[in-house]
Write a protein that binds this DNA or RNA. Structure first.
Length: 861
RNA sequence: GCGAGUGUGGCGGAAUCGGUAGACGCAGCGGAUUCAAAAUCCGCCGCCCGCAAGGGCUUGGGGGUUCAAGUCCCCCCACUCGCACCA
């Protein structure tokens, strides 16, 4: 018989149960089970060396879901791994001379120990690290399959170059014109790069968002915007008049993209981007044009630059023929607001119905021809001066389309363009193909060989995997793999001649785009089996930060489709349910010198704060996301040492709903700790072990039994709906109800024991160690990890009577106690007899009495 | 600029269907226990007036619908996030 220790001692309890769970193989997932499956996954961490509070929150949320579903009888897969390629490892190599692989492996073992200390219910047999050939070899094969299918290709293109990281970035990794990690302004470079054809799936990725009904709307919207489908038309404008030879040699037309072909009759100019081939051709013979192009090139793409930039243009002197109006010639400008990257790099301007075009037309005295008439306007005096009209209306000044609405006008315009051979309907996307080449060492080698005579040659199956060389020099500038003396030199698999390996490695988002599949079948020689993928996928609940809304989450959706179409699996969506957790925030502090201070350096001084050792006053700043740079961080290890993992977990779940930002406070942690100590004391009551009587159904004991059933019912619903803060409140409420039963009759003891046992079972997924300990002390031999979730007895959830508010003219004046489902006349009589109503009526007859059963009574006078 | 979200006591937050606003916790206040403190236990706790009984006000602001509005509709304000010369 295990007896309870005098005092709650988290470190002893937690180590004990972590060992027991491991020895009992409690959390090993079964690929051949009759139970329904449930796959819960938290976004795997980069092994930076230490976990932070964001990890603690993320994994606490996941562990709650995993333990809850397991108790409900699901075959739960809850794995953990390491997103182990990436730049910090190379930086460590440069700064400290340690090999990236060694550094990464050491970090992994340190972090694994920290995670173990949190008591997380992972199936560690499925652990993976993406930097091992055992993992990355599979993506080399995937890549070659993608190539065969035309989903991976190489092209020369302008790319985003991060001058600090010395590598290319994907469009998704450029934020406000700067590198997402380095923060350095990106440069544009023309390079030969590998791309994955995500645009092939643009429509599918967009349309399928609708089916992701367990994703936050916010993320779905962000993906929609990122894909950015816009429907419109391509329109060809033939160059007219005298065309200089230089230009006619290049082209004899300009093709534009528009979403408003219905406004074609309102066109007054055509403009091309500064890096459009036509602009470059014009600049060959014109110093003024060359100067203008240089000016445009100088203008950054940053937010600030864009906002302050004036609409500027350069009149090329060229004209184009309007495709539908015979005698209409339009001037051709080079304009700084036209982007080569979007559409065709050229537009037609309809100033009346586009604000940008209007600003431009006003600056260069171009015509403004309104062609859409708002419903309540008069064609005679409708004028556009400095605000363009973009709303709905009837077309006018538009020849055969007059009188049509905008939508019909678009269709008519496309039909007319197609008939005239001057254009066609066209859908464009903001989404670009995913550039995956990175000029880094610590990534997965791209399995390609460059041969002067055979071209691009895939590394043959037998030669896979292409492993990274161990001996590597980070001192020289540039790509370390290129600098390696021998690694890149190979003979061509086709002709046997001298050839050279591809020296770029994959973007590390490649690894995270399929790791959830590897977890399903972590030792399979082909990466994973169709059967395992079919059984476990999709992930039922995915949990992580919202910062991956368009990176990882979009790439993974693409990968599922690409793997489906290359024969790896069936299905298309990786994550059926997504929960994006809020950030962990903390107050910031600055010393007299303006430098940031750690919370550990500071202590309370009445309403303000002071330095712990000198007592000097400290400035308390905003509550912000915990970050090393602001020093407002709290080390999870210190918290776990001081309070225990259960306390840290409980606090993470209390108070704030999981999707919202939360503030980490000492007082909050103390509160969680106090609650666990209180539960421990409740359970330490020796009389509980003697409770063997029948459960009472009346009196204080009966109330407690009903309260326990209500707690089960509410808690189950709250966990299923991710209302974890409310779930914690249910625990407090039940604990309070237990405290109400103070008698020592056999029935009281029985009720108390039932209350405590229920409380412990409900507490288990949140604070599992203390729950297991108390469960054992109460005499149970089967661990809670192997115990079913409690079920509420529906009969115990109903009450006999209900307190109902009584209003007079909508204002609460009294309450009455009524039997549940009381008849209307009974309720009415009770309300009219209540003191508050009598006082208010002062003898008057009520006009009307509204009775809403079991809810409210409103007396209207 | 466009899109989305948020706004409730001193604080974090409840209120799931239009039906007793403020569950639960934190902080605070009072008491018990203690030589004392910590811890613990009991009680109070939206704001204003009042000894009390009771009354008035209150969910960012203003209007509206309704017997009844934190919740629905219209207008406005503030903050947060995402996108952005996107044709």
């Amino acid at each position: 018989m295990v007896t309870i220790m005098d005092q709650y001692n988290p470190s002893a309890i937690e180590a004990k149960w972590q060992d027991r769970w491991e020895a009992g193989e409690c959390f090993v997932a079964d690929n051949n089970s009759d139970k329904p499956k449930y796959y819960v996954l938290e976004m795997f961490p980069y092994p930076s060396g230490r976990i932070h509070m964001g990890h603690v929150r993320n994994y606490t949320l996941g562990d709650l879901v995993a333990r809850f579903r397991r108790a409900q009888g699901f075959n739960v897969l809850h794995p953990m791994g390491w997103d182990a390629f990436g730049l910090p490892a190379e930086n460590a190599a440069m700064e400290r001379g340690v090999h990236p692989g060694k550094w990464t492996i050491e970090n992994i073992s340190a972090m694994r120990a920290q995670l173990r200390g949190m008591g997380l219910s992972y199936d560690w047999d499925r652990e993976l690290a993406t930097c091992t050939p055992d993992y990355y070899q599979h993506e080399q094969r995937m890549f070659l399959k993608f190539m065969e299918k035309g989903l991976a290709y190489r092209k020369e293109s302008w790319v985003n170059w991060d001058p600090v990281e010395n590598t290319v970035l994907a469009n998704e990794q450029v934020v406000d014109g700067c590198g997402w990690r380095s923060g350095a302004p990106v440069e544009r470079r023309l390079l030969s790069q590998w791309f994955l054809k995500i645009t092939e799936y643009a429509d599918d990725l967009l349309d399928a968002i609708e089916g992701l009904d367990r994703w936050p709307d916010r993320v779905r919207l962000m993906q929609q915007n990122w894909i950015g489908r816009s429907e419109g038309a391509r329109v060809r404008f033939a160059l007219s008049g005298e065309i200089p030879k230089d230009i006619s040699a290049e082209t004899d037309y300009i093709e534009v993209f528009t979403t408003r072909p219905d406004t074609l009759y309102g066109a007054s100019f055509v403009a091309v981007a500064a890096n459009h081939p036509l602009a470059i051709a014009v600049a060959r013979d014109s110093d003024d044009a060359t100067d203008f192009l240089a000016e445009c090139a100088k203008l950054g793409t940053s937010e600030a630059a864009v906002e302050t930039a004036e609409k500027k243009g350069f009149d090329t002197g060229l004209t184009v023929q309007h495709p539908l109006v015979a005698d209409c010639q339009l001037p051709v400008y080079i304009a700084n607001f036209v982007l080569m990257e979007y559409g065709t790099g050229a537009i037609f301007g309809c100033p009346a119905h586009d604000q940008r075009d209007l600003d431009f037309a006003n600056a260069y005295n171009l015509g403004v021809i309104p062609v859409v008439l708002p419903e309540d306007a008069d064609a005679g005096d409708f004028k556009i001066t400095d605000t363009a009209y973009t709303g709905p209306g009837k077309l006018f000044n538009s020849g055969p389309w007059d009188g049509m609405n905008v939508e019909d006008g678009k269709r008519a315009a496309i039909a007319a363009l197609e008939a005239a051979g001057a254009g066609n309907g066209q859908t464009t996307y903001r989404l670009r193909d995913w550039g995956v080449s990175r000029q880094r060492y610590w990534g997965c080698p791209i399995p390609i060989i460059h041969c002067d005579s055979c071209g691009l040659v895939p590394v043959p199956e037998a030669d896979l995997p292409v492993e990274l060389p161990e001996d590597i020099d980070f001192e020289a500038p540039g790509n370390p793999l290129s600098n390696h003396p021998t690694w890149k030199h190979v003979s061509c698999p086709d002709c046997g001649g001298e050839a050279i390996r591809e020296q770029d490695t994959f973007d590390t988002f490649f690894e995270s785009s399929w790791y959830f599949l590897r977890f399903a079948d972590p030792h399979h020689p082909q990466g994973f089996s169709r059967e395992a993928a079919a059984y476990w996928m999709p992930v039922d609940q995915y949990i992580g930060g919202v910062e991956h809304a368009v990176l990882h989450l979009l790439y993974s959706r693409f990968f599922m489709r690409a793997l489906r179409d290359t024969g790896y699996l069936e299905g298309d969506e990786p994550f059926a349910g997504l929960m994006t957790q809020g950030m962990v925030c903390h107050q910031t502090f600055r010393g007299a010198d303006g430098k940031w201070l750690f919370p550990t350096e500071v202590e309370r001084d009445g309403d303000s704060w002071k330095l712990r050792d000198t007592g000097t006053a400290v400035t308390a700043g905003r509550i912000e996301k915990m970050s090393k740079s602001k020093r407002n961080v709290v080390d999870p290890d210190v918290i776990i040492e001081t309070y225990g993992a259960d306390t840290a977990r409980l606090f993470m779940l209390s108070d704030s709903p999981p999707e919202r930002d939360m503030e980490w406070t000492e007082a909050g942690v103390e509160g969680a700790s106090r609650f666990l100590k209180r539960i421990y004391r409740l359970a330490a009551d020796p009389s509980l072990s003697k409770a063997e009587a029948q459960l009472p159904d009346s009196g204080a004991g009966g109330d407690l039994v009903r309260a326990a059933h209500r707690a089960i019912d509410a808690m189950t619903a709250d966990i299923e709906a991710f209302r974890f803060n409310k779930a914690v409140a249910q625990l407090y409420t039940l604990a309070n109800a237990i405290g109400e039963v103070r008698g020592n009759e056999a029935s009281d003891l029985a009720a108390r024991r039932f209350g405590v046992e229920t409380l412990i079972r409900l507490l288990y997924p949140l604070a599992p160690h203390i729950a297991e300990e108390i469960w054992e002390v109460l005499g149970h031999e089967v661990m809670l990890a192997d115990t079913d979730w409690p079920k509420a007895d529906p009969d115990m959830l109903t009450e006999d009577s209900v307190e109902i508010g009584v209003q007079v003219n909508g204002k609460l004046r009294d309450t009455v106690s009524l039997p549940v489902d009381a008849e209307e006349d009974v309720a009415r009589a009770a309300a009219l007899a209540s003191a508050g109503v009598i006082r208010y009526l002062e003898g008057r007859e009520p006009k009307k009495v509204i009775v809403v059963r079991n809810r409210i009574i409103n007396v209207v006078v």
